[in-house]
Design a protein around this nucleic acid. Sequence first.
DNA 1: ATACATACC
DNA 2: CACTGGTATGTAT
Length: 659
Amino acid sequence: MKKDKEILKKVTALKEELAAVSEAHLEACMNKANALLSSLYQQYDFTRTIVHMDMDAFYAAVEMRDNPSLANIPMAVGGEDMLSTSNYIARRYGVRAAMPGFIARKLCADLVIVPTDMAKYSAVSRVIRSVLSQYDPNMTPLSLDEAYMDFTDHLVKRRELDDQSRTFPEFSETMCRCEPEERLGVVSSTEGISSAVGDGVADVPNLNEDNLQNSVATDDTRILPSATNSDTEPSEARIMKDTTVSTDTSQCPRCNMPHNPKRILFDVGVEDAVREMRHRIHLKTRLTASAGIAANCLLAKICSDQNKPNGQYMLPFTVDAVQDFMKDLPVRKVPGVGKVSERQLAAFDVKVCSDFYKHRDVLYFLYSGGMFEYFLSVYLGLGANRLSKNEDGPKSKSVERTFRGMSDPDQLRTLCHELSLELAEDLKSAKNLQGKTVTLKIKLVTFEVKTRSQSLPTATNDGEDIYNVANQLLTTEMKNCSSKPLKLRLMGVRMSNFTTSDSKQQKLKVIRDTNSTPSDKRISFLDKIEAERKSEKVNQSCNEPLGLLAYMSTDKPIGTTSNISNAGRNVSTKLSSVWDESGDVTTRKTGKIIELLEGASNTDPWSLADSTSSSVATIPSDSTVKTATKYGPLDFYRSSKSGALDPWAKDDSSSLGGF
DNA sequence: ATACATACC
DNA sequence: CACTGGTATGTAT
């Protein structure tokens, strides 16, 4: 309600801004949008088959599985103060994830709230991932219950698999549900898996290696629990095969349940492959999953929501099907468009994805280049079709705690200390991460949130170090509003800016290695930068290199400030001094380097660059020190968007031949 | 670099 | 009674 007003306020402000804009300007926006659109349009790629799978009401489902008395009542997982998930019965009352318990109870007085047991969910998750890995060893988990997979390779191999490899016992609570491991001939590290099964999944008994070997060697059927739960997957037509293994009344040595003579044969096609995967998850965990199948991650993710729970949806791999699908899709379904964006967009009559197109001129004007490009690519149904490598690691870590008004300075300090130490522990146990930036977050009793941060010269993960900074920030805040007592309802401490394995040097190397036609001069200059960095002299001097910048074919003199139009806004740029490889300023009157100033990060200097000439620039000695990577060349401008995708990368001689 | 808002689970 | 907590990211300054 309060938020609503704020959103509305912003919207009206934006509308005014929009109203003040000339027809001509809007027309220009339209042209820009069209240009981008036509370049995006070339990006369709239906060569990969991406699957997104998502467990149904995961935490709640696990708890219901392990405690049948919860199965038919409205329940949720979480604390009194916050719910993580609710089951489908509770959802009928409007009880949702991310809802405080007390509100949930208002909606549903009988709601049972089960405390979360992350350890258990992680264990179950490992089991699930072991299945997923068999379809894509490079599967990318998004969270405990969600993952992207690229099925392309599996589908090729799958054609070679015999029927038996695609045959699985029907689901039954009372009969064996085991299956031979490695059935798909996929190598998977099963060590962790079997142990995970041991502690995490109560209903797959005795899965130890001995038994595993036995059963794999001797038979292919096992059994499990039962009950015609097979009708939980109704809509799915599969090829059924009553391989009446009949006479087999024996028990599975693994789970001690009778073998299930009923089998399901899955086809070699994509949809059956995915059904099979979901079925195997069901067999192993007694939990259901939903999945989406499409040509890229964005579409797959949206599709997995389509037939939830316990269903799947495949979006045909054609431009027409994709566009048709996107046309009426509510923008809220788009990942990244949350409650706020939904409202904002709605205020400009953008409700479904085709409205991204319909109002492209206005959107171009209103949103940043990145956002706008995203909207249009979503409209077209474009998305990444390769799973990004799971590297990097966390970018920040934090601890925060909510409580009921606290204003005593000593108490606050104590809390701050505790949080700092906790965070330090977290950092240490998480790969011994060390960070430079400490952020203090406080929420006043009025619900106003503030963050205050400060960076250290050196990375640390020492509790006292962190506390020193956090406490200082806290003290400042307390002084700052000394008139009032500073009553808080939340305090948090965060560490970020981790020193990874010197990403800066890494990047410089990459840049150098990437140069197709590297100039010797440039390399030697970069080497020098690297050397300086290593000797840690860099920050002493304000001559810190800004990085490689485009050598502009402009005739304006050094020092000129000019404007570049970027996404309908003007961005300030400055022609700066040119430094040669010895570090001296060359005094060319017509310097041709453009230095991007703050806030200009979306401007692509290459698009304005003369493709043949290039050089290295540093910032003048009286400037603020900046790092080379911040404006580092190739990397920076090309990272997220592949060259062609960059709206500002003109079709002309744009990129830097020399680089 | 810092502050804040938004999104997702 | 009462509206989380953790992390990532975009945007503005």
